[in-house]
């Protein structure tokens, strides 16, 4: 068991160079982890929506939105000595928990996955692996020693 575990909730972000960052109960939300293997620094964000609705007025970036969450995560990692050139991403979540709410094809989960892929692609960050979609909830933990992510589900 690791002593050094930091938990984040929905709409939160964390960056570290030691221990583990963990989040539980990922449904339609998307969790993005970024890791710089050379500097052994990385972070995780648990975002809810693909993007903000209104863009007119000035606002502070919020980890609620997938696109802004990725920006926040990269900035934070670079401030602590990492580099976007070396970051590798992993995606977890984006499930469809209820057909009644999401319809048959496209729900928030799907849009969150698409938003993460697009935004990472635009910056040029490789997605190393994904455990996304489906109809199950997940939990994820990022190990800062090696950048590995452990995903678990109830079923």
């Amino acid at each position: 068991m690791h002593e050094d575990v930091k938990y984040i909730g929905t709409g939160e972000v964390a960056v570290s160079s030691t221990g583990i960052i963990k989040t539980s109960g990922i449904g339609s939300c998307i969790v993005v982890t970024l890791y710089d293997g050379e500097k052994k620094i990385g972070g995780m964000v648990h975002a809810m929506l693909p993007a903000r609705k209104e863009n007119g007025t000035e606002y502070l970036l919020s980890p609620k939105y997938t696109d802004e969450a990725i920006e926040i995560l990269i900035d934070e990692i670079e401030q602590q000595g990492g580099s976007r050139e070396r970051l590798k991403a992993k995606l977890i979540g984006g499930a469809k928990m209820f057909r009644l709410l999401s319809g048959d094809n496209f729900g928030i989960g799907f849009k969150n996955i698409e938003s993460a892929r697009e935004n990472l692609g635009a910056i040029g960050i490789l997605i190393e692996s994904e455990d996304v979609g489906g109809t199950i909830g997940r939990s994820a933990e990022l190990n800062l020693e090696n950048g590995l992510v452990l995903v678990s589900s109830m079923m």
């Binding site: 109960g25 449904g27 939300c29 709410l101 997940r138 079923m155």
Partner: peptide
Amino acid sequence: SDMLGAILESILVE
């Protein structure tokens, strides 16, 4: 049947 957090966040966000 699933994790409470995953279910609630999906319902509330949708």
